[in-house]
């Protein structure tokens, strides 16, 4: 059973329509998606994460429709936004505790997991590493990266491990770094 299935998925904004996007992602698989614009990449990432609801076509996450079962879909996926986080080292523990509370993860386990992932992301800037760590402590089965930094591709691939990965890009070089 595919973990993510998008069939002619579109999202209509006030000015333009994004899509149609069709793709299928199996558990453990990695997929990079080359988009024409930054807006398109962000919208596709939000659709795949079940955060935005498709205006047309269908998006199924673990065979569930985010329009009907948003909570189940959000347990399966985790989105790492493109924008860097404006939090520093002093607020890291607070951020992990907050994420653990929202995803109902045991605090001690969340902190241990966060430390483990942090070790794997050594050399990566905190502003980009923290959201990925936060996303991974919820134990998702699918990670969605919205325009990740190509320079950190090796660390990100190591941290994500066997979890299915979908990344959106606007530059071919960045897409090939995650392929």
């Amino acid at each position: 059973m595919p973990l993510l299935r998008m069939r002619d998925a579109t999202f209509a904004t006030e000015t333009a329509t994004v899509g149609p996007v069709s793709l299928q992602l199996e558990p453990g698989e990695r997929l990079t998606l080359q988009c024409a614009t930054a807006e398109e990449a962000a919208v596709v990432a939000l659709l795949a994460a079940g955060i935005a609801k498709a205006s047309g076509g269908s998006v199924l996450i673990d065979d569930y429709d985010p329009r009907v079962q948003p909570v189940h879909c959000k347990r399966v996926t985790a989105l790492v936004p493109h924008e860097p986080f404006a939090i520093d080292e002093s607020e890291f523990a607070r951020y992990i505790a907050y994420r653990a509370a929202l995803w109902n993860v045991e605090p001690a386990r969340a902190f241990a997991h966060a430390d483990l992932i942090r070790g794997r992301l050594r050399g990566m800037h905190e502003a980009f590493a923290y959201p990925l760590i936060g996303a991974l402590i919820g134990l998702p089965r699918l990670i969605i990266l919205d325009r990740p930094q190509a320079v950190y591709a090796p660390q990100i691939r190591t941290a994500v491990g066997d979890i299915a990965l979908l990344s959106t890009h606007t530059e071919p070089a960045a897409a090939s770094a995650f392929a």
């Binding site: 994460a49 955060i51 909570v71 189940h72 959000k74 939090i87 951020y95 929202l102 995803w103």
Partner: peptide, 14 residues
């Protein structure tokens, strides 16, 4: 507070 917004939007909550 965009980082809080994003966390809450992606959290498994109704």
């Amino acid at each position: 507070h965009p980082h809080l917004d994003r966390c809450e939007q992606s959290a498994p909550l109704f």
